[in-house]
Design a protein around this nucleic acid. Structure first.
Length: 895
RNA sequence: GGGCGAAUAGCUCAGCUGGUUCAGAGCGCCUGCCUUACACGCAGGAUGUCGGGGGUUCGAAUCCCUCUUCGCCCACCA
């Protein structure tokens, strides 16, 4: 710890070492510090996919969680941030299938067991990668509790919940139209079929009436489905078609007679008012088909090629090729009435973006309405709070319109559905079981397990309790359920967040968390979501390498306000991340300066210790920085609590850079160098305020704050800032006075500096300053900080009162104090007159508008009296300032 | 089609309960400085019809209406 600190902060030289030190000491475990004390505070990390590589979305999401968990940990809560990885059924299976494809193999070549083994092999390699990456950005999760959604324990939870829901009648097997991905060859839930607007066409097709008297026109966006049409439907009240109801039309191309049925689901105002009915390929048509007992003709294979149910010349064609051929035949038959452009929403597989195909099949579903009701109630009665609030609207809308959840997937990678079918011919019993079955519980005959696996989200929706040991009653479960805050990107509200609430309420009887913080999405400067396919991503690890993890975190946090997106420029890392790096460097150097002046522990700033600094030893500057520090504690703490992390970052940044570094450190230098008295007091104040600043900043920039904090003299070697107590408020009675008084000192110094710059006085050249119209309080402040003023404004002399000199720079401070910096004959008087003239005009305008306002009887009578009083004060101040400058102009002889 | 949000300096964004933060910050830009913590720095400076229009109010960047433009979510008008 005693080696000298380099003048330039080098994050890579300290970050990994500090992280290792934290982990070795187990600081991220809720058991690690102050055992038994503090209420628990629990965040469930959204488990990244096992195959994932860290991207900015992870970076943002995990930085926010880490800030919150570190904040609460320092505030004395028993903080548990529980990490895990998700087996990510479709995604992971796709990755391994792609690997196989490169070897010229498919999963079917390997067979189920060998394929699953192959996926495990892959997952064992890639699984730890993302977690290691999360560590490099400083994530203080409790890695000793890391779970995997396919772990034995979590699998048991999955099975228990499936069986329970089945027993409660909430899990059922059904024959319905579901969204099917023809590339992944599996069913998808409604949420997994993402609607995207596409420019399509609307084909108007003529179906000839069976009696030869004309035709009826139907419109479709998917003409190929006509191969499976089994009816034409019209609205029962539609006059145009009344006579056709009950008759038949001849389905062209297929040459089949199909009935015209009347169904209220048809909208008579759309298109021709007649609609083709394809029960096997459209959910609405399926319902119509049901009501009219229409046959279903499934014309598509799982790969979305035309099946044997269609005429031979179409069989085996891809759906889009079949579409072209069907349209061509209609054209040839002169039955294609017209084609129009039609923009509409089409479902796309959320994993591979393939257009999904509505498909009729047997799947397992969860009945959602009974689960949604309590979840809705928990929001309405205020138990759940969304940040930002408006996200609650989405939640409500989704729950209110909830549809049953298709949970079976035709995949091999995942939790096998715990259902066995008896193969005995006369039994055929379906058994749902917590334990694997080898024979039929009904007849003892042979059984066959359902081939399908469960939706990945069926395991992740249980994580808030399954990761804590449920269904066993473990100490962790009783201690850490329910949790507190859930931090998520908005895109998984329905996949994950809302479903966890439902499972938590249903299984545990309590919501898994009460605050849901939904942050924004990381986008590029064109506001496009960062993605691999667009190639507009920024690699967080590259940022860590070049700027440090703290700079990455700072930029993400500071660039984001509650619920808004984070815009980063992939082509210009400097603009986004240099501020964080610069700030880290500033902090590092302030730390270097302060620590180098603290060879031994400083005197305590307060308390009963006889060596403690007494109040009357504090200078105005000391009292000022202590007051500023206190305000910063107050503001930063409030900001963290309100999830306003950018405010917290900004407040602390300003305190460290503008107050502590720019003013206090500069003020304190002569005292430290022994030129004036009070060095030990300055050291005490520096140590105290810097320590507080480091602790306030630690949640956002954990590495550099730890590195500096550990180096304080007298700090025990094992102490870590990550479990240091959060700074307490320490309000001093004189705070407002100190803020005002030192503020005027700052104004005076700035005024002189401005005049110096205005007149090109070289930096080394001392000048004199004369102040007049000084109130006794201001004079006292200037007197107390005379040395500071002389030094920082580079004055050879500061006097007050009138002077014979007239030529020079003039200014007026906010309290009306006049400042004069004599410039001899060298300067251009007309220029100064001009400058002052501008100021005088500005003030005059202010005064006039203010007089008007106060002259307004309405204002005086209607505005609250304190506001009126404040406005009067303003007028007085501006008038004073104006008068001072007018007098100056007269003295200068301005025209 | 339904719902929600945003528009403030060249860029990215603060501005929370209408009035002492009221027009701000950072980056960028201009000027001068290698001042013994830091040039990833110091000091000083310029830049705005607060998207347009209307309204409420003593008072509007802030509340209401409307228009424009851009997002996001939801949706079985085939």
């Amino acid at each position: 710890m005693s080696e000298p600190l380099a003048p330039q902060y080098n994050p890579s030289s300290i970050e990994s070492g500090l992280y290792r030190w934290w982990s070795e000491r187990g600081l991220f475990s809720p058991e690690s510090h102050a055992p038994g004390s503090g209420e628990p505070y629990v965040i469930m990390m959204p488990p990244p996919n096992v195959t994932a590589m860290l991207h900015m979305g992870h970076g943002l999401n995990n930085t926010i969680q880490d800030v919150l968990i570190r904040f609460e940990r320092m505030r004395g809560r028993r903080a548990l941030w529980l990490p895990g990885t998700d087996h990510a059924g479709i995604a992971t299976q796709n990755v391994v299938e792609r690997e196989l494809a490169e070897e010229g193999l498919t999963r079917f070549d390997l067979g189920r067991d060998a394929f699953v083994e192959r996926v495990w092999q892959h997952v064992r390699e890639t699984g730890p990668v993302i977690l290691e990456q999360l560590k490099t950005i400083g994530s203080s999760a409790d890695w000793s509790r890391t779970y995997f959604t396919l772990d034995e324990g979590l699998s048991r939870a999955v099975r228990e919940v499936f069986v329970r829901l089945y027993e409660e009648g909430l899990v059922y097997r059904g024959h319905y139209i579901i969204s099917w991905c023809p590339r992944c060859l599996t069913a998808l839930s409604n949420e997994e079929a993402e609607k995207a607007e596409v420019d399509g066409k609307l084909w108007h097709l003529r179906y000839p009436l069976a009696d030869g008297n004309g035709y009826v026109t139907v419109a479709t966006t998917r003409p190929e489905t006509m191969l499976g049409d089994t009816a034409v439907a019209v609205h029962p009240d539609d006059e145009r078609y009344r006579d056709l109801i009950g008759s038949s039309v001849r389905l062209p191309v297929v040459d089949r007679l199909i009935p015209v049925v009347a169904d209220p689901a048809v909208d008579p105002s759309f298109g021709s008012g007649a609609v083709k009915v394809t029960p096997a390929h459209d959910p609405a048509d399926f319902e119509i088909g049901r009501r009219h007992e229409l046959p279903t003709v499934d014309i598509m294979t799982p790969e979305a090629r035309i099946s044997l149910a269609a005429p031979p010349r179409f069989q085996g064609l891809d759906r889009y090729e079949a579409r072209r051929r069907v349209v061509a035949e209609f054209e040839t038959l002169q039955l294609l009435e017209r084609v129009e452009d039609h923009r509409h929403a089409v479902g796309h597989c959320y994993r591979c973006d393939t257009v999904v195909e509505p498909r009729l099949s047997d799947q397992w579903f969860v009945r959602m309405e009974p689960l949604a009701r309590p979840a809705l109630e928990a929001y309405r009665n205020g138990t759940l709070q969304f940040v930002p609030e408006r996200r609650g609207d989405d939640y409500v809308a989704w729950l209110e319109g909830i549809r049953d959840w298709c949970i079976s997937r035709q995949l091999w990678w995942g939790h096998r559905i715990p259902v066995w079918y008896c193969e005995a011919p006369r039994c055929g019993q379906t058994s749902v079981s917590r334990t694997d079955l080898t024979s039929c519980p009904g007849c003892g005959g042979p059984v066959r397990q359902d081939e399908d696996v469960l939706d990945t989200w069926f395991s992740s929706w249980l994580v808030p309790f399954s990761s804590l040991g449920w269904p066993d009653s473990t100490p962790d479960l009783s201690r850490f359920y329910p949790g507190h805050t859930l931090v998520s990107a908005p895109d998984i509200i329905f996949f994950w967040v809302a479903r966890m609430i439902m499972s938590g309420l249903h299984v545990m009887g309590e919501v898994p968390y009460t605050r849901i913080y939904l942050h924004g999405v990381v986008r590029d400067t064109l506001h496009r979501k960062m993605s691999k396919s667009l190639g507009n991503g920024i690699d967080p690890l590259e940022v860590v390498e070049r700027y440090g993890a703290d700079a990455l975190r700072y930029s993400l946090v500071a660039g984001m306000s509650v619920g808004t997106d984070v815009i980063l420029d992939p082509n210009d890392l400097e603009t986004s991340f240099a501020p964080g790096r610069n700030f880290a460097n500033k902090l590092w150097n302030a730390g270097r300066f302060i620590l180098s002046n603290l060879e031994s522990p400083p005197r305590p700033l307060a308390g009963n210790d006889p060596s403690a600094v007494q109040p009357d030893e504090l200078s105005l500057a000391d009292r000022w920085i202590i007051a500023r520090c206190d305000a910063t504690v107050r503001e930063a703490t409030a900001a963290y609590q309100r999830f306003r992390l950018n405010d917290a970052a900004g407040t602390i940044y300003h305190f460290i850079w503008s107050d502590l570094a720019d003013w206090y450190i500069e003020q304190v230098k002569p005292r430290l160098y022994g030129d004036v008295q009070g060095g030990d007091v300055a050291r005490a104040v520096l140590a105290q305020t810097f320590d507080v600043a480091l602790r306030l900043l630690h949640p956002i920039m954990p590495f550099i704050t730890e590195a500096l904090w550990r180096r304080f003299p007298g700090r025990p070697a094992e102490a870590s800032i990550s479990v240091a107590p959060w700074p307490k408020l320490d309000a001093r009675a004189e705070a407002p006075e100190a803020l005002r008084a030192f503020g005027l000192v700052q104004e005076l110094v700035s005024a002189v500096r401005t005049i110096r710059a205005e007149y090109g006085v070289s930096p080394g050249q001392p000048v004199r300053a004369v102040v007049s119209e000084v109130s006794p309080e201001t004079a006292a402040a200037f007197e107390q900080e005379r040395a500071t003023i002389l030094r920082l404004a580079k004055l050879s002399e500061l006097s007050s009162g009138e002077t014979q000199e007239r030529i020079g720079g003039h200014a007026v401070l906010s309290d009306g104090t006049a400042v004069f910096v004599p410039q001899g004959e060298a300067i251009d008087v007309s220029r100064e007159c001009n400058r002052l003239g501008g100021e005088v005009d500005r003030l005059l305008r202010l005064v006039q508008s203010q007089e008007q306002k106060l002259g307004n009887a309405q204002f005086v009578s209607r505005a609250p009296s304190d506001v009126v009083e404040r406005e009067r004060q303003k007028l007085t101040t501006w008038k004073e300032q104006w008068e001072v400058l007018v007098k100056k102009r007269e003295l200068l002889g301005c025209s």
